[in-house]
Design a protein around this nucleic acid. Structure first.
Lengths: 217, 217, 217, 217
DNA sequence: GATGAATGAGCCTTCATTCAT
DNA sequence: TATGAATGAAGGCTCATTCAT
């Protein structure tokens, strides 16, 4: 009765699958808005349901709890961002470009998805609050993002292009600065200077990573 | 009954004032612990009252709402931290030392007050979430902290000690990195390498601020 | 296609009727398990549907509500039990045997259908709770069961075999005791002594019904 | 500040204690009505709160959960009933009177507290449903009630006043019959014949317990 | 001032029932 | 006829805030 004529071995997506996928995505998108605007605690499942144009009970057909919606929302955003970072960083021709790409892609993504940025920051805060407890999934997501940058830096160190620094620590520094950059832009709303700030950061870091001339510390 | 024999125009602290001050301080300290451990939403006024050894109703004699307690708690910590930063940055003999002092004093303060750090991060997230709304008080507090650093950098730029960069942007970069540093230490718990990380950051930034040799971007 | 060769005027069961009957029976059986295990309120229509291997919506094609399923389930069990009681009590040669049969058949039936016993007891409680409200169907079912016993006792009274007691009241007493007996066995799980208890009860009642010797009340 | 002038070593009940006790009692009484009328599941905490003229939240100051209210309500009734049974059974001069007292006191108590009787029956059903699980507290309460009767019967057996029967089993039989008696009265509402029924039961049992004349089974 | 009992609004979650396919 | 996705009412419980003592 449902079409089964599929040549691919993997998955002949039935109509139900499509609907289900549509709903899940729609709920996640609504949740992104609601969680982004109100934070986890202030967000209500009712609001998420409304925002995705379904009844409250329907939400629970797709996610078992408010917490689960939140996690799925966070994970979805992180996965997308991670994919973009990987893509752009790997495409970069030079180490400098890779750093710039890293900062830029994060800035762009968060600029385009301010709701998600709020979730992202809140989740970060939550992690700090839970201090030493779980940290599992979201920590891994962060790790995956910096890993690409770290690899680039390590390679540049090896090639002598930049001075011998701890690649991980340097990557994290870039990471932190790009986060601050986005936060400030979202807070203040000055979208104009985004590219200038990106360039500034890249330059600051790149210069900071240059091989020493003569005197050092 | 209370002493009224005061010559100064400002404030002859009566016994009531002293008690009031004591209570307010005690509540703030309790709130720091409670908010730090549970976050704003999960924290209960009851818990704060218990932690400061007064009845719930008493808390409301000193602060009009849970929100107000939170704000006062945040403000108190920020004020203290700001004082320390100013002190240490101004004492620094050189620009490099000032930067290092900035990073170090923040790292130390947050390390000593992890509860406050959690509040600090959460408040940051909250600001981002409220995006464009209030931002008033807490933003000012942050400004005050970076201002000292910015001044130092601006002076170093003027003296030619470092290359001509946007002092404000540079200060914020240092600010962001130091925040990330503390967060990671609290999350992972590796207290040992704090000084090494501080030194790394200082070095990275300082190098990044050096006058260009020949080639640049 | 379906056999229409029926001489009786009543019902030539069409294929639809058969399927319908099958479904209804299957749902009732599933409901007996589910209601028995969880009680009315905790039981879900979903669980009943699953247990009878149909979709939730299908259940509503055969019964208009959860309440209706419950009632049908109760009625079905009561009807079956009633049939058994009638059969065995009428077969009994003597009044004593009739009493024993009454107790025994109830004990056996409930022992074999513990799920139904739970429904039975719950329904009893529900009746008491609804006090004076419905009472219709289930009360009649109970009446029918005791009626057989009552008739036997009345006859024995008439024949002088036992002393002149209120046959209805005596029947109810037997009824109550047998219920308690089963309940205790199900609660405690001591299946071994069932026959001993039955014998004890029969003896107690039988003796209690003996014509007075000399002194009475 | 509060009066501490109490000579008794045990407990100088402060005003708070009195208020607390009053509230707890008032909630229990309201709960008895509500649970009695609707059953556990259909009863709402809101309704209990209303019935005891407090706000919903207040109920939770005195009992941690709906379940806890229920248990306390049941326990309170059982304790009171148990006390009455003990009292009356012990006062009885003869075994026959003790049996009669047992039946009568239960009938009276339940007649006076029909709401509690509904809870009592429902709890019984619930026990059967939970079959083999906990059974703790409420089972003990029942045990305590039959124990008094059992003792009387055992003594009568020992003195040869009645024939040698299993005292426990006989007590339970009386127990079951008295429960059925009450249930029927509540269901049908015929209050008039209560004493007649009590007398009938007592007579039936008493006769049933008489030493055998000649022939037995 | 200090207390803590009382309040009641608010929210997550479940599930009987409906209905489009 | 059979399905199961969608609905939305309902209720237990928490907790910020108030207020009588």
């Amino acid at each position: 009765m449902t079409d089964k004529s599929s040549s691919a071995a993997s998955a002949p997506p039935s109509k139900e699958d499509v609907v289900t996928e549509f709903r899940r995505r729609s709920i996640i998108e609504a949740a992104r808005r609601v969680f982004g605007e109100r934070g986890f605690e202030q967000a209500t499942v009712e609001a998420i349901a409304e925002a995705s144009a379904v009844a409250k009970g329907t939400v629970y057909l797709y996610y078992p709890s408010k917490q689960a919606i939140y996690e799925a929302t966070f994970a979805a955003g992180m996965a997308e961002l991670g994919r973009l970072i990987l893509e752009r960083v790997e495409q970069a021709a030079t180490a400098r470009e890779a750093i710039q790409a890293f900062v830029a892609v994060r800035a762009e993504y968060f600029q385009q998805h301010p709701d998600f940025f709020r979730i992202y920051v809140a989740e970060f805060a939550r992690q700090v609050a839970a201090s030493g407890t779980l940290r599992g999934a979201s920590q891994q997501a962060l790790d995956r993002q910096t890993r690409a940058l770290k690899k680039v830096i390590a390679r540049a160190v090896a090639s002598g292009e930049i001075r011998p620094v701890d690649a991980g620590a340097a990557a994290l520094a870039v990471f932190d600065m790009s986060k601050g950059l986005v936060a400030r832009h979202l807070l203040i709303g000055s979208k104009a200077s985004a590219s200038r700030d990106i360039e500034f950061l890249t330059d600051l870091i790149w210069t900071g990573l240059q091989p020493a001339r003569g005197q050092k510390k």
